[in-house]
């Protein structure tokens, strides 16, 4: 049995205005189907333990999350080792419903951007209104990050989790690192810690 490894071996950048880190392997299951279908909803809720997310949001249970990706797509996040079991539960719950559930854990990568200036870092790279009043914990956003596609959400007020394609992890890590360079904070939003 081979050990799953991340794309960058857990790379960390700590010397800037925010800490950029490649997170350990993360289980991800993509579910495509009609999200209005009660069987699809019940299967997603059953396999994740989380509530059904509204448009553009992410919900979290004790050990899993459900993210709204598009009107016909959800992403289930869970510990990497639990994917086969949860996927089987999902398939069972879907039954004959017209839907597709696939393990995409190894096709994606998870990074985090942490710190009071984390908003500045993301705002430099994405065409998203990231002001504290507009983007808040609980929201989920798929967008463009520099030249590639990415998705992110905020588990807490000072933490971003960024999902990207695994083959683009180095690129995403590099652009985040550049955007987080020391002395590059924009200062457009008040410091949540109250400092200067």
């Amino acid at each position: 049995m081979s050990e799953p490894v991340t794309a960058l071996g857990g790379a960390v950048f700590e010397t800037g205005i925010a800490t950029v880190r490649e997170e350990p392997v993360q289980g991800m299951i993509t579910l495509r189907g009609d999200l209005e279908d009660s069987a699809v909803r019940a299967a997603a809720i059953g396999a994740s333990g989380a509530e059904m997310p509204d448009r553009g949001t992410i919900t979290t249970s004790e050990d899993a999350s459900l993210a709204w990706m598009s009107p016909d797509e959800l992403m289930l996040l869970c510990p990497h080792g639990e994917v086969p079991e949860r996927l089987a539960r999902l398939q069972e719950g879907l039954g004959d419903a017209h839907a597709l559930a696939v393990n995409v854990s190894d096709a994606r990568a998870l990074l985090s951007v942490v710190g009071p200036k984390a908003r500045d870092v993301l705002a430099k790279l994405c065409p998203v209104d990231l002001s504290p009043g507009a983007f808040t914990p609980g929201m989920f956003r798929r967008t463009r990050m520099a030249q590639v596609g990415a998705a992110f959400w905020m588990p807490t007020e000072e933490t971003f989790r960024v999902v990207c394609f695994r083959s683009q992890t180095q690129y995403v890590f590099d652009v985040l690192t550049v955007a987080a360079q020391k002395g590059s904070d924009v200062g457009i939003w008040p410091d949540p810690t109250g400092g200067g």
Binding site: G56, S70, P127, R141
Partner: peptide
């Protein structure tokens, strides 16, 4: 109009 997101043209 599908997902309600407002963004500039480079996301589209």
């Amino acid at each position: 109009p599908v997902c309600g997101v407002t963004s500039e043209e480079t996301e589209f």
